Simulated assay, not measured.
Amino acid sequence: MEEDQLLRFVAMKNEAMEFFTGNLLLGIKPDFPRVREMLIEVQNFFLKLTGRADIGTERILEYIRETPLPAPDFDRRGMKLMEKSRDSLGERIFHLSKQLLRAMNPDFYHALVVDTEWEKYFRLQWCRKGETIIEIDSVPDGVYYLDSGVAETVNGKGEVLSMMETGTIFGELAYFGREQKRTATVRAKTDMVVRKISTEDFKKMPVIVEIFKRIAIARKEEIKERERSVN
């Protein structure tokens, strides 16, 4: 690696780290979405130069994947390297999703928690309050897991149908209906972090498709029950 290339790598990484740790003197707060984009660029630059990944950069990217928002004491403690990280995405879905618990069986548990290869297909997205995640009647392009925050579902008249909190899977209904279109609009009620798996990726995994199908069946029953209670 040439000296000027090394200096560029160090400068790129240092700039990214400033947005990772924050800099009170410059008024910079930790900004994980921005850091992730910057570190991916850093990692690609290092790969091009050396043919291998930078371990330190990959460790921070892994931390952001597992912890997409800074912890309350992050400014004092930073990355808690010696502590156990959060449960895997599969474990969180298993423990938190009411729809999935109703659909669960041992094979699904193994697919989610033991064989976690599928997790890499879920892409992190940060959403601002008021942002539309899904538009009613649109063609489905993926299924979502709500990692943090609150979302609301809205019908074509603009009426709020329900609220969704951390641990909810949504966007699966459109794949198992006759028209295969989005049945409601989903908006961010608060700032949110979601993980999205694309149509192409989840259809590669039959067990995951079956899980989403059973979640959709359970959700349809919930909708029917809600409609009956209103009428």
Rank of each mutant, 00 (worst) to 15 (best):
R8P: 06
F9I: 09
K13E: 07
E15I: 09
L24P: 03
K29Q: 14
F32W: 08
R34M: 12
I40G: 02
F45E: 00
F46D: 00
L47S: 03
L49E: 10
G51L: 01
D54Q: 10
G56P: 03
G56I: 02
G56W: 00
R59F: 14
R59H: 13
I64A: 07
R65S: 10
E66H: 04
P72V: 02
G78S: 02
S85C: 14
F94L: 12
L96S: 12
L101V: 07
A103I: 01
N105P: 01
P106R: 04
P106A: 07
L112H: 03
V113E: 00
V114C: 13
V114P: 01
R123G: 13
R123V: 14
W126Y: 09
K129L: 05
G130L: 08
I134P: 02
I136H: 06
I136M: 10
D137P: 01
V139R: 14
A151F: 04
E152Y: 09
V154W: 08
G156T: 04
E159A: 05
V160N: 05
L161R: 01
L161T: 00
M163V: 09
F170S: 04
G171R: 07
A174F: 03
F176P: 07
K181R: 02
T183I: 11
T185Q: 07
V186S: 01
A188I: 01
T190P: 08
V194I: 11
K196C: 13
I211V: 09
I211R: 06
F212E: 11
K213G: 12
I217M: 15
E225I: 15
